[in-house]
Computed example of a mutant assay.
Amino acid sequence: MSMDLINRSEIAPAGLFSRRLLKRWRSLSRRSHWRVPQDWWTPEVDSLLSGRRNHEMLSESARQLGAARCRQGVGVTEALTDFRCYFKAALRHTDLNAIQAFVEGWVSEAEEVEPISCTDPSTGLSTKAHFSKTLQEFTDRLDSAEALLATVTLIPRQEMTAPLSWTQVAALGAIFLAAFRDTESTLMYEGHTVYVLAVRTPELFSALLDCQAQITLSRELGDFRSTVACEALPQQSSGFHQVLKSLHR
């Protein structure tokens, strides 16, 4: 008989329903996007379960959990995916006020701490500075025939130029993180486009096609279609600087 046990150091929330909900939530999260199982539980998880029946308590607990996830070093994409699993586990509609409070808690905490990585917290992908540095390293290390700069651009299905919302950006980041998990690649999001710097392999093209398919299927990105383009890295320094310049358009 298999059992889904909680770490003995954890304090389980009171009540049989809360214990069952905690197990369902944790199980869904681990199957979706949570990367370090032993770091999932925090005291703020129990606070959220205790305050689930009161909207004000739920929002405040969500804010505290968002802040706690940030302190753990969990990116907003992974953290928000986990929080959405809570509503699925509880068999209830997503509470947009609680979602907003969760993100506000995460962002407020992020503003208080020193950046500890080269990761853009809104997408889980690389920052522009880190991507540019990696592009230079790729140019120095690899023959241009071995590496590609690929782009996946979102194009609105109707006339609109509004930037993507934070939920759409997070969904886009999750799609690319999953598709490129097993590839040697660096990814960055900028202006409706995801830039992919990678070694030229069949896995790269497979991942690009998978991203296009997932964008098409995504509920959050249903207002967009996507196009893919690839180009070899330039061998001359002048061409390299032109590539960097294009990232800022």
Rank of each mutant, 00 (worst) to 15 (best):
1 M>P: 14
4 D>Q: 11
5 L>A: 07
5 L>P: 12
6 I>D: 11
7 N>V: 02
9 S>H: 13
12 A>Q: 09
14 A>H: 10
14 A>Y: 01
16 L>V: 13
17 F>E: 07
18 S>H: 09
20 R>W: 11
22 L>F: 09
23 K>S: 13
28 L>G: 01
29 S>E: 02
30 R>E: 15
33 H>K: 01
36 V>K: 11
38 Q>T: 15
43 P>A: 02
48 L>G: 04
49 L>G: 03
52 R>S: 03
53 R>K: 12
55 H>G: 00
63 R>F: 09
63 R>E: 09
64 Q>T: 07
67 A>Y: 02
68 A>F: 03
70 C>K: 13
70 C>D: 04
70 C>F: 05
73 G>E: 12
74 V>P: 06
81 T>W: 03
81 T>R: 02
83 F>C: 04
87 F>V: 08
89 A>F: 11
90 A>H: 11
96 L>V: 11
96 L>W: 07
100 Q>Y: 03
100 Q>I: 00
102 F>I: 04
103 V>T: 12
106 W>Y: 15
108 S>I: 00
109 E>R: 14
113 V>M: 13
113 V>G: 03
120 D>Y: 06
121 P>R: 04
121 P>Y: 14
121 P>I: 10
122 S>W: 10
123 T>N: 03
127 T>M: 04
128 K>I: 08
128 K>T: 06
129 A>C: 01
134 T>H: 00
134 T>E: 10
135 L>Q: 04
135 L>A: 11
135 L>K: 02
139 T>Y: 10
140 D>W: 00
141 R>K: 08
143 D>K: 12
143 D>N: 13
144 S>D: 07
147 A>Q: 09
148 L>D: 09
150 A>R: 01
158 Q>V: 13
163 P>Y: 04
164 L>P: 03
164 L>V: 07
166 W>S: 10
167 T>C: 05
170 A>I: 06
173 G>H: 03
173 G>P: 06
173 G>I: 10
182 D>S: 13
185 S>H: 01
186 T>L: 00
188 M>F: 13
188 M>G: 00
190 E>Q: 14
194 V>Y: 00
198 A>S: 15
200 R>I: 00
201 T>Y: 07
204 L>F: 04
205 F>S: 05
205 F>M: 05
206 S>F: 02
210 D>H: 06
213 A>L: 11
216 T>P: 00
216 T>N: 06
221 L>D: 02
223 D>E: 13
223 D>P: 00
225 R>G: 14
225 R>M: 12
226 S>T: 08
227 T>M: 05
227 T>H: 02
227 T>R: 10
228 V>F: 07
228 V>P: 02
236 Q>P: 00
238 S>G: 10
239 G>F: 04
243 V>I: 15
243 V>H: 08
243 V>Q: 12
244 L>K: 15
245 K>I: 02
245 K>S: 14
247 L>S: 07
